[in-house]
Design a protein around this nucleic acid. Structure first.
Length: 697
RNA sequence: GGCAGCGUAGCUCAGUUGGUUAGAGCACCGGCUUCAUAAGCCGGGUGUCGCCGGUUCAAGUCCGGCCGCUGCUACCA
């Protein structure tokens, strides 16, 4: 197989929004991209993986406000969390930037000037609802009110969930801002637009002819957007807005979807500065003309048109290089359904890492990703079965069952006759590589596992354990058989290295040294030392999955219903606001004896129901283990869905004197955090492993 | 409400431009093996290819209709 000429490949994943944590749905894309990049590097190409946090927009502004800190504080703490999650899953960026950077501001300005220079920017007034208390313009989903048709209350600003009528937010009966509760006003504001219709011919041609898009996507675009004149793209938002003010239009800010893709350019620019590279040779057409770089964008299907219409239009207008490939993937379901907080299947990256091996998810995703735009399903039962059968049972087991016989002797000096097994799998390298190149990782995994099956069958047929018992007369034969098996194992590790970098590294430690090139799959090792075998990968146990789901359910239940999830633990401790403590100063000092009079216990919520007549009470039955249960009224109605509470562990004051309430006798108290004028009541949960009845000391 | 995609074995999926008796893994059953992380190997049922109709010598595959599911969208592209 001739060594392919080295390519320069710039690869991006969509920029995660700084409004929330990374979850398993996000990871489909980052793992997919990471596998692709690692594959290209293994093949000897110059691949650069770039990404950044997407930091601007109304949602960030509102969330920061709710948390009582600045947008930049929010963005900075979320960045740390994102990077930690990616590192945990072995997603390895060459550079990770931010759209809130100097480079991005400068490059936005450059693209903007190009659009202006080509006469593609116009302006006109847009009428929109405005929240006079919060001081911001409101998207439809931030407005609720009565349906003008059927009168149903508390409907969104665009359509009625009860009768299905559609209307504008201004038509609502008694409209309210969901931010402040204020009655919104209709206001008019100037917006700036890009007239991308002027680039219609270019887009027609690029979407169909450039080879960057799957024909299905090109057809979709042709049928839905390019079949008629393109509407102007609204690219500005009036103040207040967290983002970059437009230099030649004071009071106007670039819409987040304008500066987000420019973040790809900014990340490239920063990476170039750090590595002595020239930005121009990656992105400027003139400079790159003789040896153009490839540009691959990995995105979810939801943001297709931003990356296939607006983004190429911006690049075209600015004279920058166009994407070589826009690779679009589908969404993740868990056990066949949309991820759900109450089912515990809204799985954050961190929650997964607390319980399971990232390699297991990387392999599972690889086995499901075929390069298409179909959604993929994380079936948790299949997940465990597949990882255990394929990785532990077949691949790792191959080394586990043969390495011990070579620990003292190392590999045989000549590669033995293996019936053509190694050569056959080496010959399949081109097919496996083609599948990786096409992002059809599922096909690659199938082909690799067939080779693993053949390798195990070989071991079974040669029965090295019998050779071991047969004594010194069979020692040479035993060494040959184990040499074959270990070579086949290392060959599999090379093929799997893009998916399982840690396994590849461990395989290198066992025999042959670090795996640095795909070519290592093509020739067997001989005479090399063999290290002591250490377990390479643990089985996925059902208990771990259950624990992860339980933890996920509990953290979801702790999130106030309605509104954005607001996690308090996303940043370094010293960035927390002092407001809650100031609002409720510490109580007078008490002694340990004082404290010990309060008997706090872990309890499990056995049932939860609304108390219809009560404004804030839920009626809970909690269990302290065994037959010990009691009824507790908790003032958490409206913040917790009763159904979601059942089963979770909480902390109760177990020796509190019973109190006769209007709705019944309350035999204790569930402790929860609240205060500082902030809304929300937050139940406490013990770490996994705590049992009902345990006392807090 | 708008748009798109999907529907093949119990589960997750392959099925290339229409072409023999429709495939894989898991699960399940039987047997073998015991070196290995209760791992491995061999054999075996696995099926109205969502429903109805059409084109064709030939339809899982192409066309139309229907049903079901899913996703995106709803500051409109």
């Amino acid at each position: 197989m001739p060594a392919p000429r080295a390519r320069r490949i710039l690869v991006t994943s969509a920029l995660p929004y700084a409004n929330g944590h990374i979850h398993l749905g996000h990871l489909v894309e980052y793992i997919q991209t990471d596998i692709f990049v690692r594959f290209q590097k293994l093949r000897g190409h110059r691949a650069v993986y770039l990404c950044a946090d997407d930091t601007h927009g109304t949602a960030i502004m509102i969330r920061a406000r709710a948390e009582g800190r600045s947008e930049r504080e929010l963005v900075a703490s979320m960045r740390e969390a994102h990077l930690a999650d990616f590192a945990g899953f072995e997603v390895e960026f060459d550079h990770y930037g931010s759209t809130d950077s100097d480079a991005n501001r400068r490059l936005c300005g450059e693209v903007w000037r190009a659009l202006r220079a080509r006469g593609l920017v116009t302006s006109r007034d847009v009428r929109q609802l405005f929240d006079p208390v919060a001081g911001v313009f409101l998207a439809d989903r931030f407005v609720r009110g009565g349906c003008p048709k059927c009168g149903a209350s508390d409907q969104y600003g665009d359509s009625c969930e009860r009768c299905g009528a559609t209307y504008g937010p201004a038509d609502l009966v008694d409209p309210r801002s969901t931010l402040s509760g204020a009655t919104p006003e209709v206001r008019s504001a100037e917006h700036l637009f890009v007239t991308i219709e002027a680039l219609h011919d270019f887009l027609d041609h690029w979407t169909r002819e450039a080879g960057a898009l799957d024909p299905r996507v090109a057809n979709y675009l042709a049928g839905h957007f390019l079949g008629e004149p393109l509407r102007d793209w609204d690219v500005s938002r009036p103040a207040p807005y967290f983002g970059f003010e437009i230099p030649d239009a004071p009071g106007h800010y670039w819409y987040v979807w304008f500066d987000a893709p420019v973040g790809y350019l900014a990340a490239t620019d920063e990476w170039c500065a750090q590595h002595g590279e020239s930005f121009d040779t990656w992105w400027r057409r003139a400079a790159a003309a003789d040896a153009p770089a490839e540009i691959h964008h990995f995105i979810g299907k939801d943001i297709t048109y931003f990356h296939t219409l607006f983004w190429p239009a911006m690049l075209e207008a600015a004279g920058l290089a166009l994407p070589t490939k826009v690779r679009i993937h589908g969404f993740l379901t868990v056990d066949g359904q949309k991820m759900s907080k109450s089912r515990g299947t809204f799985l954050l990256a961190r929650t997964y890492l607390d319980h399971l091996d990232p390699a297991a998810l990387r392999y599972y995703y690889a086995s499901k990703l075929s390069g298409g735009i179909d959604d993929i399903d994380l079936n948790l039962e299949e997940f465990a079965a597949k990882v255990n059968a394929d990785l532990v049972g077949k691949v790792v087991n191959l080394a586990s069952r043969t390495a011990r016989w070579l620990e003292h002797t190392g590999l045989a000096a000549d590669y033995p006759d293996d019936g053509g097994l190694f050569a056959r799998a080496a010959g399949e390298g081109a097919e496996i590589a083609a599948a990786y190149e096409a992002c059809d990782f599922a096909r690659a995994m199938r082909t690799i596992m067939l080779a693993a099956d053949r390798a195990n069958a070989y071991v079974d047929a040669e029965q090295p354990w019998r050779l071991a018992k047969a004594g010194t007369g069979s020692a040479a034969r035993l060494r040959d058989v184990a040499t074959v098996a270990l070579n086949l194992f290392r060959q599999l590790a090379v093929y799997l290295a893009p998916v399982l970098p840690r396994l590849a590294a461990q395989a290198g430690e066992l025999v042959g040294g670090p795996i640095a090139s795909w070519e290592e799959s093509q020739a067997p090792l001989v005479g090399a030392a063999v290290g002591p075998f250490v377990p390479l990968m643990q089985r996925v146990e059902p208990k771990q999955i259950e624990a992860m789901l339980a933890a996920s359910r509990e953290s979801a239940a702790a999130t106030p219903s309605g509104g954005t999830a607001v996690e308090a633990d996303i940043g370094p401790p010293n960035t927390d606001s002092g407001a809650p403590l100031a609002a409720e100063p510490l109580a007078p000092t008490c002694t340990i004896d004082d404290f010990s009079r309060v008997d706090l216990r872990v309890a499990r919520i056995l049932s939860a129901e609304e108390v219809p007549e009560a404004r804030k009470l839920l009626k809970l039955t909690v269990g302290l283990g065994g037959d010990s249960t009691r009824t507790v009224f908790a003032g958490i109605k409206g913040f917790h869905d009763p159904a979601a509470l059942v089963g979770r562990l909480v902390v109760v004051v177990a020796n509190l004197a019973p109190r006769q309430m209007k709705f019944g006798l309350s035999e204790g108290m569930v402790v929860a955090a609240s205060g500082a004028g902030a809304e929300g009541v937050y139940l406490l949960s013990p770490d996994a492993g705590a049992l009902p009845g345990m006392r807090l000391h």
